[in-house]
Each structure stands twice: as C-alpha cells, then as structure tokens.
Amino acid sequence: MNDQLLKIQNLTVDYRSSNKTVHAVRGLDLNLRPGETLGLVGETGAGKTTTALSILRILPDVAARVLSGEILFDGKDLLTRSKKEMRQIRGRDIAMIFQDPMTSLDPVVTVGAQIEEMIMLHADLPRSGLRKAAEDMLEVVGIKRERFDDYPHQFSGGMKQRVVIAIALSCNPKLLIADEPTTALDVTIQAQVLDLMKQLKKTYRTAMILITHDLGVVADICDAVAIMYAGEIVEYGTLEDIFDGHRHPYTEGLFNSIPSIDVEQKTLEVIEGLTPDPTNLPSGCAFHPRCPYASAHCAEERPGETQLSDTHYVRCFQCAPSKEKELQHGRTVVERL
C-alpha cells in the first residue's frame, strides 16, 4: 500500500557479546499511516526499544546487528541509506523522545542551546532566528522563554521531559517515536505530559509510535496497538480490536492483569512464568511455556500471522479461524469473560 508512512518488514536484530547472542527482534512487521498513533506494548525486554533504535539506526555499533528486514519510510528503505542521508532523516523526518528525561539532556549545555542545535541541523535559519525559534518551542511545551539559558539541572523531571519533547518536535517531524515517555515520571506529571502530547499530536498531525507497557496510556492516546512478546508482534489491531476483541493468550493475560475497580480482588492477576531468556528462546511459539491453551503443536512450529479482519492480525495457532480448536478456545474465552 502506498499510504503507509512506515512499513517494517521482517526486521531481525541480534545483540552479540563474546559468548551469547540475544535475539532482541525476530521477524517484526509493522505498518503506520501518516498521522496515526501506534501503541507498541510489551514487557521489559520484548524488543520495543530495539525496534525504535533500529528505525533511527542508532543501535549501539559494537553489539547490535540488523540481520534482515527492511524499514520503508516514505517508500524508501532506511537500512540502505547512507550515514549522511540518515543524519538528515534523524530529527527532521523522524524524531525520538527517550525514556528517562533525567538523563536524556546534556548536563553541560543550556536547554535552549539543545533545542537550537536541533533546529540548526535541519532548518535554514539565521543565527537570530534560531534563538527565537527555540524560545517558541519552549513556549509550545509550556515553559517560559526566559528559561532558555538555564541548564538541565535547574529543571524538574517533568520539565525536562517537556524540553525533550520540544527538541523532538522542533523540526516538525513526520514520525515521532516516544519510548516510554512517562514511565520515569510521577503520576500527575504523567497526565500533564500525556495531555501535552495529545494536544501536540492534534496540532502538528505527527504520526507517532508510543512505546509503553501501560495499557491505560494506550487507550488514552493510540489509534492502533501492537502487542510485542519476545521480539515479535503477537497481536496487532485497532484500539477497538485489541481492547474489545483481543485474541492472543498473551494479550488476554495482559488485560487480565489490570485490576478492576468494580470487582474486589485480594491478589493481582499475573501471567504465570517469566519472560523467556532472549539468549535461549523456547522452540515454536515463544509464549507456549506460559500459555494456558498451548498444545503440543505450539512447541514445534512458530505460528505465522493469521488475519482475523482487515485490521486485526494475530500470531497464534489457537486463534486460527480454520481450526476446530479455535472454536473451543473462543468458547473458553467467552466463558472466562
């Protein structure tokens, strides 16, 4: 399809150290339309950040290897671009907000200069215009322009994240990747930052990949959701598909682990077992050791993508519509609900 802004196909990334190989991303497919917001959800270590860093090609050189796949952005593969072309794309077309605002700003440079740097790299403005543009960006994210000459240590965590957002948005990128932008913040500040992002999304019509493990945040801001587990996307669909009709047992587990306000619960629901060791993944479907519906087949073969509707995909043998088992599984899900 031509209306895709970003199309990732079969992306595979490994981290290698002297004696171990970490399979961080395994054959990942992902699509994003212009202006769309995608929530990338999964546990720590599922490969969310690695995916994001691959898009920008800023994976650590020493350890990381992109083994296969293509990342089509505006129809052209980012993985085959030259370093110089990538530098122009970073910041101008694709910008990123990082997880921990406390450490993502250079401590010895003023916040204003850090915004200026971004604008200077990608916009053709005279020296005086730079400062004004950077000051304007500070105001966009709700910081007084007088604070241009202050250093990061003079800001609180929430304010720093605003600065990081200002940097990311200062060149009006087509795609914004936000890697757990609120995880390191207080709940009240989280709400403020999310509101800010929602508002900016509306104003600038920027497409966004929001990496998070907070389904509440996803429901609040996203149009589409991709659930990641052990380096692959196990379920993908619109917000409605995932929240009202999720089919993958892992997604089900995620939703079950959200405590309900209406029902009195003594203990929190959890998904049994641990995230698999990425250096030594289980055979077949990576989720099968923890899956309550697993059959012998699940341990042998890796499930392919099953299309459930135009927008809804799932990677699970138990959810394949052609199989009889699927009906049983469907019934059990209904019974459980």
């Binding site: 794309i89 970073r90 910041g91 997880q99 993502s104 790299l121």
Partner: peptide, 14 residues
C-alpha cells in the same frame, strides 16, 4: 554510554 549522547545522535548531529 550515557542517554544524552543517544539523544544528540537522534537529532542527526554529526
């Protein structure tokens, strides 16, 4: 190894 160096790389700085 610090995060802010990654931030600057993500800006497209040389």
């Amino acid at each position: 190894r610090q995060d802010y160096i990654r931030t600057i790389r993500a800006k497209g700085q040389t």
